[in-house]
Each structure stands twice: as C-alpha cells, then as structure tokens.
Computed example of a mutant assay.
Amino acid sequence: MNPALLEGLSMGLLLSALVGPVFFTLIQSSLSYGFRYAAVLALGILVSDSIYVVITFFGVKFLADATYFELVLGYVGGLILIGFGISSLLKKKVSRPNSGGLDFPQFKKRSAFFKGFSINGINPFVLLFWISIASIVQIKDTFGTAEVWYYYLGILGTVFSIDLLKAFIAKQLSHLVTPKMMGWLNKAVGLIMIGFGIRMLVFTYLQ
C-alpha cells in the first residue's frame, strides 16, 4: 500500500475516534430517521471537510495568521450549536425510527445534508485540525502531488466510511430503542450540543 495513503488512513482513524457534536448528531439521526438520512448527513460532513481541505491546503499560512477569522467562526459556531441543542431539547414528538428502506422527501435530504455540513463546518476545532494537517503536508519533503492526494483521500475516505459504520450500527440497534428512550436521547444530545457550544464560546473568548 502507498505509504502516504497508509499514513492518511491512520490519521483518519485518529480523527474518527474523537467524540464531538458530530458523533452524537450522527447517532441520533440514524436512530430517529434511519440509516439513509444519516448517510446523507455524513455526506454533508464529508463535503464540509473537503472544503476545509482545499482552503487550508492553499491558504494555511493566511488562515493561521488571521486570528479574527477563527474568532468569528468560534462565536458563530458556538451560537449555532447552542441553537441546535435548544431545538433538540424542545422537540416534543419522537417516533420510532423508520425502516430506512423507503425514500424520504427531498427536503429531508436537504436538511440532513445541511445539518451535517453546518455542524461540522462551524466547529473551529475542525478548522484547526485541517490547518495542522495542511502544515504537516507542507513540511513533508517526500510528498509530491500524488502523495498529497493519497494522504488526503486516505483521511477523508476513512472518516466517511467510519461515519457510515457508526450510523449503520446505531440503526441495527434501533429496534431496542423505545420512543421514550429516544426522547431522553434527544434531550441528552441537546444538552451535549449546548455544552459544546458554551465551551466553544468560552474557548473563543479566552483566546
């Protein structure tokens, strides 16, 4: 196997092991709406990561020096996460997860994609991660154009595949989950997301 691809796979596994708001949203979405909804959400996450890859790879020095960009992203991201959390807390009716075998309305697909894209995209820690990855790539003298592609494809492919695996496993366990349990899960996810949002605001303020 190509060494750059192998290194990218290992970095992708490391990123996938991190537990953050995206993880909880992915699991909750799979339980609530089925695997296909969660897969579209994971696609939104992938596109968000891909955009960060392009931005950080071609402008890592500019982004690292422009602290105001990180501050704006931190405040806006924190508020959006808190908004998602409050929305999850206020959700009243919780139905049993669907079978995932039927197609769902187009607006559901768009909302799933946007939810994954935005929750991942507004997290400044994700930006910092990709800045660090771009920095690693820049200092690797042995990396040519092909190796850079292999490295990033290894990371993105691994993260996306494991996200799908998380959603699939959660869906397989959905028959064990009652509507009452899902209601508590929504509240737990809401509190966790609010916690991440507050933490993000505090972290940004203290910078």
Rank of each mutant, 00 (worst) to 15 (best):
I155M: 00
G100S: 02
K61F: 03
I45G: 00
K92Y: 04
G154Y: 06
R199C: 04
S95G: 00
V54C: 04
I45M: 05
A146C: 03
L128P: 05
F62T: 13
A42Q: 06
V40H: 07
L90T: 11
S48I: 00
F104M: 14
V148Q: 10
I122F: 12
I51W: 01
V19N: 12
G121P: 04
S29L: 13
A64M: 11
A17Q: 09
F84P: 09
S30N: 12
I136M: 11
R36D: 07
Y33E: 01
G197F: 14
Y52D: 03
G59Y: 04
A17T: 13
A4I: 15
G77R: 15
L102K: 04
V202Q: 07
K187F: 01
K171Q: 14
Y33F: 15
L185A: 07
Y52L: 11
L31V: 09
L79A: 15
L9H: 05
V202E: 07
L156I: 14
F57G: 04
M182N: 08
L165V: 15
F117I: 07
F69K: 01
I155H: 02
G78Y: 01
S95H: 08
S95F: 11
T56R: 06
F160R: 04
Y152M: 09
F24Y: 15
D103Y: 00
N98H: 02
L185C: 07
S10I: 11
G12V: 08
R199S: 15
G85F: 05
A17I: 11
L185H: 01
I194C: 13
K91A: 02
L90K: 13
R199P: 00
G59E: 07
W130D: 05
L9W: 13
I27Y: 08
L89W: 05
S161W: 12
L43N: 02
A188E: 09
L46W: 06
A134Q: 07
T67A: 09
I198M: 14
V148F: 01
L15C: 03
L176D: 06
V60E: 12
L43T: 12
F117Y: 12
F24Q: 03
F113D: 11
L191P: 11
G77H: 14
K61Y: 03
L102D: 08
F117E: 07
V159S: 06
G183Y: 08
G78K: 14
I45S: 04
Y150R: 03
Y75D: 14
F143Q: 01
H175V: 10
F23C: 14
Q207A: 11
G12K: 06
P97R: 12
